[in-house]
Structure formats: C-alpha cells, structure tokens
Design a protein around this nucleic acid. Structure first.
Lengths: 185, 185
DNA sequence: GTCTATAATTTGATAGAC
DNA sequence: GTCTATCAAATTATAGAC
C-alpha cells in the first residue's frame, strides 16, 4: 500500500524521505514535515500515528520506487552494462540533487537508535538491492577468475554507498564520479 | 589538545565516540554519556559546554587516533600492500567490535542537521584519510593503465565505508569481508 | 481530514552549593 | 570538578471540536 505522491500521505512520505536522507531519522520532527507539506503536526499523526510508522513507510516506499525504476534485471532488451550504469545513475542523482545520501545507508548509520521497523526496512532495502544486482551480474560472461556474484554485488553497492557519503561529507560532488568511474569501464 | 583516556574528559570523549558511531549524533544525550562515565550530566557540560563542542572533540580525537595508528605512509620498512591491509583492518575491527561504523560516514549521513564544527570535523577526517591513502598508493608501481592515485584512494575509502554500512544494516559481519576482499588481492 | 490545545517526556544548558 | 536543582525549549503523541 504505497501512497501516491498526490495524496497528503504521499506528500508526507516524500517530505520525510528528503529530510531523512539529508539529516537522519532524528534530524527532523513532525512539525518540520507538517511545515513542508503545509499542514499541522497533528494531521501528520493522523496519517502516521508514530514516527516509527512514518519511518517504516518511507523505507518501504523508497525501496519500492528504486526497484520499480530499475525494472527487470533480466530484460533482454537491456545489456547488463546498461543496467549497471542505470543503477549508478540513481546514486549520482541523489548526490547531484543536493546532499541526499541513500536511505539504506542512513538507516544503517543510526541503526542502534532507530525503532525496530525502520531498521528492518533498511535491511530489506539492502536485500532487494543486492538481489537485483546479483541478477544483473549473473548475466555477464564469467571472467577468467570468476568472482562470486554475491561478492561483486556487495562490492558495487558498497562503493556507491561510500562514494555518496564522501561526496556529501567533503562537499565535493566530483568525488562521487571519481570514486565510481571504474565501475563503468 | 587531545585528552588522555584516563582523564574524565577522555572517558567522556570515548563514550561519546562509541555512541555516535552506533547511534548517530542525535542518538544519544548528555545524560547517556554521564551514565556511561559514572557522573552527572552537569559534569559533562563542565568539560564540554555544548554538544557541538563534544562532537567536534570526538571527531578530532577520532581522526588523530586513526592517523597515529596508521603511522608514516612512506615508512620503507612496510610495503604499500601491508599498509593498505592495515587500513582495511581498522574498518574491519569497527564492524567486528559491534556495529560501529566510521565516524566520518556518520557525520556525512546526518550532515545537514549537525552543528558546523562537527561537520567540519568530518570533512577533515576524510581529507586526512585520503591524503594518507594517496601517499601509500603513490608508492605502488604504476600499472599498464595508470589510474589516478586520487581516484584510487577515493575508491578504496568509499568501498570500506560502504562495506561497513552494509554489514551493519544487514546484521551480516561477513558481508564486510566479502565486499572488501578484492582490495587485498 | 484538519485544526487548536495540551499532555508527558526528554533534551541541552545554567545557577549555585560543596 | 562534581553535585542538586531547575529552566526553557522541543519532541512525540493524544483529545476533542469543526
């Protein structure tokens, strides 16, 4: 049950996602979200009773949107290389759009202080992302020394997570491209 | 001016570092730190008047400790490969010791909601880390297609950051080793 | 579904005694 | 340097009118 962007619930989730990715789960309040959307904090609670509910909804919507945007990893119309480039571009957009790092990375960072359902949402995000990457990588012709597909997917995801983090921490968007350019070669 | 571990100020910084790396800057309070050290929150304020002061002190101590532990990147007694392995081990220890990710990554994650001096401390950490890595990589014999040392260092740091994050988010410590094993080959 | 009003708690921070 | 006591503000969350 993912709210559309047009509904109030959808606007709330969108605002909360942006805030979470910029500032972390504890870096925004119900009042912040209410102000973003143009309503009062009590109305936010009407749609998402607790902050745990809101955080879990954000994680679920974020994961679904990513997987939907990526599409079928086995689509014969698209080469594995093109699919990988598409995946890299998702992260690049977050970096370019303004200091938004991956929601999964943010959840992992603050994990110990997060409500259970939010942490679970982050784990699901990583699992789905890795499954998609593994499916794509399985299509590539095996190299001379075939690295386990699982390890390749982990390495790819880790590189993107870290590159986005460094670019944000250093205020250097070009650091992202420098770090990940080897992927596309 | 870095407090020793034995002093109260040192214990406060150590406790704050652990909490920041596990839970984020907004994931702990002065009262939490006071309880960890065995004093009252007013006493914590005596050593670090504001949370910004405390966060900046943690970042500075963390950076200094890492660089000190790594030592001279041009030490002829140690090969570049051994130095890289040492660097990887620093991150592995954080993962193994229990869900502690890199402080620099955590600061980058929450950047927008952090006090200025804390954010600056995170940037300094990344700069110092990259400088050390670049110095080590400059010693390696250039490969056929010489990748820029700067890009190599960024890629290495990003991979470690991301691998630690994924391991924490998935509760899978083995994910870290799988993701970074290619570095050591 | 949104609002006003407010409860209950926590937080960063200060004053002042010892 | 540590304590007790307390403040002012912010936070999550709820009750009830419209």
């Amino acid at each position: 049950m993912t709210a559309t962007q047009a509904s109030t619930a959808g606007k709330i989730v969108a605002a909360a996602e942006r805030r979470m990715r910029e500032s972390g789960f504890h870096g925004f309040s119900f009042r912040d979200i209410a102000a973003d959307v143009g309503i009062k904090s009590a109305s936010v609670h009407h749609h998402f009773p607790t902050k745990e509910d809101l955080g879990a909804a954000v994680a679920e919507a974020y994961t679904k949107r990513l997987i939907d945007a990526l599409g079928d990893p086995n689509d014969p119309q698209r080469t594995p290389e093109a699919l990988i480039a598409l995946y890299v571009d998702v992260y690049r957009q977050g970096v370019q759009k303004g200091r938004q790092t991956c929601l999964g990375g943010m959840i992992a960072c603050e994990l110990t202080s997060l409500p259970n359902e939010v942490g679970r949402g982050g784990a699901v995000f990583f699992e789905r992302s890795l499954s998609w990457l593994e499916a794509v990588l399985r299509r590539k012709p095996p190299t001379a020394e075939p690295e386990a597909v699982q390890a390749q997917a982990l390495r790819l995801l880790a590189l993107l997570q870290g590159a986005a983090l460094i670019a944000k921490g250093l205020h250097r968007k070009d650091a992202f491209d420098l770090a990940v350019k080897s992927i596309l070669e």
